[in-house]
């Protein structure tokens, strides 16, 4: 019989934990983005590679310096900065200057994320905040993302990435489909203005799979998330004058981000023990 120590660790239950972690979640999203990134590298070659490298370098640098500035532990290994860099690169338009890419990463990582409290605390989706801010600030330089222009392979890559995300089972599976359904229905109701169906589906599916999976900016219940996504799709369709527009979709999501704290309160879960009392109250 081996000798045993006299005292043991006495932390509270549970004493076992799932294998899930913050880093696995972010790197999982990065992995799901890889088919799209590879497809974009293949079809847009030097232009996208340039934007991607610049975005990655600037994101890592801003993450490092913001950790110093806000006296936090550098958590680059979580992969959040890499995810933000990839999404920023994907959302940048063709012919975008280097300064705009660096500024987008600064706005996403420092302004939208760290100024609002850092990981898990921010109110707005950092990448969309940066993209919409740049659209407002320098509209002449900004256009639709270069990777969205009609290409079946890009759409297939988004679909493959979406399947990878669904396989990871780390979000609600219905979110991208609900977004696609509500957006398409709203678009039809408003007069079927989608000029380029391929571009439309590419944009909507990308938004549904990759921009509506950031749990930090989504409501705290499944029901709330469904309302959020439906609202974002409806607003996105209303705000885009001709077919799908990433700025309109992004602005809609940012507007819904403002509603998230209220959705959290309005659509909070009701404990099973209180349901009977509520029913009795309603009956009276």
């Amino acid at each position: 019989m081996a000798e045993t120590p006299k005292t043991f660790s006495t932390t509270l239950a549970p004493h076992i934990h799932s294998a899930d972690s913050v880093a696995k979640r972010y790197w999982g999203q990065v992995a799901a983005l890889m088919p799209l990134v590879l497809a974009a590298c293949f079809f847009r070659r030097a232009e996208f590679l340039h934007a991607l490298l610049l975005s990655l370098i600037s994101a890592v640098a801003f993450e490092f310096f913001s950790a110093k500035l806000f006296e936090k532990k550098n958590k680059f290994y979580h992969g959040e900065a890499v995810l933000i860099a990839l999404l920023t690169a994907v959302l940048m338009p063709s012919g975008c200057p280097a300064s705009a890419i660096i500024l987008a990463n600064f706005l996403a990582l420092v302004v939208a994320k760290e100024f609002f409290g850092g990981m898990g605390e921010y109110l707005f989706h950092p990448v969309l905040f940066a993209r919409v801010f740049l659209q407002g600030g320098v509209p002449g330089l900004m256009a639709e993302p270069m990777v969205f222009y009609g290409n079946g392979w890009i759409l297939a890559a988004i679909g493959l990435g979406g399947l990878l995300l669904l396989k990871q089972r780390r979000g609600y599976w219905e979110i991208p489909f609900l977004y696609l359904a509500v957006y398409s229905f709203s678009d039809l109701a408003l007069g079927c203005r989608a000029g380029d169906p391929l571009g439309f589906f590419t944009g909507v599916l990308f938004t549904g799979f990759f921009l509506l999976v950031d749990p930090v900016t989504l409501p705290l219940t499944r029901k709330g998330t469904r309302w959020f996504v439906s609202g974002a799709a409806l607003l996105g369709a209303l705000l885009s004058p001709r077919g799908f527009s990433i700025v309109a979709a992004g602005s809609a999501i940012l507007l819904m981000n403002l509603l998230t704290p209220w959705l959290d309160i309005w659509l909070r879960p009701i404990p099973h023990s209180s349901r009977k009392l509520l029913k009795e109250g309603r009956a009276q």
Binding site: D20, V22, R25, M119, V216, L220, P269
Partner: peptide
């Protein structure tokens, strides 16, 4: 290796605790 405890990270608001709560409360909130 069974009871190892990883350092606490900020809440990601992933809703897993809400979805897995058997009494229907919101642990995250």
């Amino acid at each position: 290796e069974i009871v190892k405890e990883d350092p606490e990270e900020p809440c990601l608001r992933c809703n897993l605790c809400v979805d897995k709560c058997p009494v229907g409360i919101s642990p995250v909130m």
